[in-house]
Amino acid sequence: MTTVIEARNVGKAYGKFRALQNVSFDIPLGRIVGLIGANGAGKTTLLNAILGLTRYDGELKVMGQNPSKNRAKLMEDVCFISDVATLPRWMKVSEVFDYVESVHPKFNRAIALDYMSRTTVPLDKKVRKLSKGMITQTHLAVIMAIDAKLLVLDEPTLGLDIIFRKGFYASLLEEYYDQNRTILVTTHQVEEIEHILTDAMFIREGELVLNETMDDLSERFCQVFVDESKADKARAFNPISEQKAFGKINFIFNGGIKSKLKGLGEVRRVGLADLFVAIMTGGKK
């Protein structure tokens, strides 16, 4: 299996503040990986290192290249959207396509125009005249028309309404993603991307605290809503989190012990957002 990103002890310090430390992982081709962390946890720093936008310590290989040294070459196989609405505001939409067509060897204008034809974005308007949602659609058209191996998305839908957000991820999944592409995405709207992820990575204070496939996660973690009378029984199985809700207590368990928990109540899959909160707050509440 081809490895798209190989990280070994990647670190980054700003003065005394360590934004990233000892981050190691491999991401193979054909995955959709969610990088999830609180504000300031180091998500963007890690993505910037992967994209060659910042210097770092340790070893990092993206598509076999050193991103810090070969960003230009790397960008033939890697696309990214960092932040919302980064398209140059003084350009017309058609000029954006002209530019990408003239500098990117793997850009197919017909694909971009096909996607645009299904939106209401006017090609002859300047980007500054477009709504935030339209700018994102234009950027998505650029991305989808580039035959890249890795797509990195850093909060690509921040500030957009729910319809645009849903449409964005639906387009990515239906028209872009296949077994020969990897998508690495961060967002605060974890619930919205959960169903498309194949893998999840949790990052806390610059350290990677979890890196697993979604299948393994739903195997390992589960939640049970338990009546107060059975709470002590539940606590005996060492839950990683407990929270009162609707007169019951919601326990989250780690360690593939679903079968043992059946007598306590209905055993359910844990949502990624709940799991994230449980692991990050790291204790009983």
Binding site: R71, A72, K73, S82, T86, L87, R89, Y99
Partner: peptide, 19 residues
């Protein structure tokens, strides 16, 4: 382009900073 963040778009293209 740093102020309006569009440098991130330029940098997503295969064009070196030197160029």
């Amino acid at each position: 382009d740093r102020r309006d963040r569009s440098f991130l778009f330029w940098k997503s293209m295969p064009v070196s900073d030197t160029k």
